[in-house]
Computed example of a mutant assay.
Amino acid sequence: MSELYRFIHAEKANYPIGLLCRVLHMARSSYYACLEGEAARRARQSADDALAHEITVLHLASRRTYGVARIHAEPRRLGRRVNRKRIARVMRERDIRGSTRRKHRSLTPPDKKATPAPDLIDRDFHADTPGTKLVGDITYLPTAEGWLYLACWLDLATRKVVGYAMADHHRAEPGVDALDMTHGRGGLEPGCVIHSDRGSEYTSTPFRARIRELRLRQSCGRTGSCFDNAAAKSFWALLKEEIGTRI
């Protein structure tokens, strides 16, 4: 609303609106149109504020990880339609942002001196029987005391984490310890395939020796191809997004 319209609105209790419009050389219809527009703008602002409150609650409940897509899905799941572009605008105006997955960065280089195991998975990340095909990887998570390295093994039949280990380094020990936990829980079939990338943790002598001791079969993807271990990489991406590490 312009200054002239604000002046008329403020003085209409003291003078007739028609007189004020004539003195200011303004049509009465223009004043009433502006008045109606101001009411509509206030109604839209009130609706945006209510939507922003709902978005904030959902965003905080997701540990500040949900972006426009997931925020938009929640009202639709409850049977209420909200325009996606409107949600994006409200989040942008209030600087509400979700976490994004960053480009994958390899944790450790392969051991070029070691002969890698063959790829027994060949990107077939399915298994009918538990304990026959496992995929694993190691990643890093930020903590108040520095980087925490987490290794895990995932059963492709159940999609459950069957073994894990943590350490303040990413040498061979976390991968071996996670494998020992998996074996200790039982359920591994003879000749179970243990698949990973060609990082130095998995081509190391201690890890390969432990594979032989447990009578398992080692499998490794190609160098520099994250898709050869996509099931494990996807698990890390989802875990980091849910806990909000944003790395």
Rank of each mutant, 00 (worst) to 15 (best):
F227W: 13
I17L: 14
I96K: 07
L150S: 02
D119Q: 06
R101I: 12
Y66R: 05
G221D: 05
R92H: 12
P16L: 09
S106Y: 10
L134P: 07
C192R: 02
R185G: 15
D168F: 03
G79I: 05
M26G: 03
G131Y: 08
Y15G: 08
I121S: 14
F125T: 13
L35K: 14
A232G: 00
E242I: 07
E11Y: 07
I17H: 01
D119G: 11
M91P: 04
D137N: 06
S225Y: 01
R102P: 01
Y66H: 12
P174F: 05
V82T: 15
R171V: 00
A73C: 02
G224H: 01
P142Q: 10
Y5A: 11
G37F: 03
G131S: 09
L239P: 02
I55R: 01
P130S: 13
E201H: 11
A47I: 01
G146Y: 02
D197L: 05
H126K: 12
S219K: 04
G199W: 06
R80W: 00
F125H: 13
C192G: 04
G186L: 08
E54Q: 12
A117V: 06
S46R: 12
F7E: 13
G79T: 10
R185I: 03
H169E: 10
R86A: 08
G146Q: 04
R185A: 12
Y15Q: 14
R84S: 09
R246F: 10
V193E: 05
F235K: 00
K113M: 10
L150D: 00
A144L: 11
I211D: 15
M26I: 08
A33M: 04
L214R: 11
S200Y: 14
S62G: 09
H9T: 13
N229T: 05
I96Q: 03
R42P: 02
A151V: 00
A47R: 11
K160N: 12
A178P: 01
P75W: 01
H9L: 11
Y202M: 10
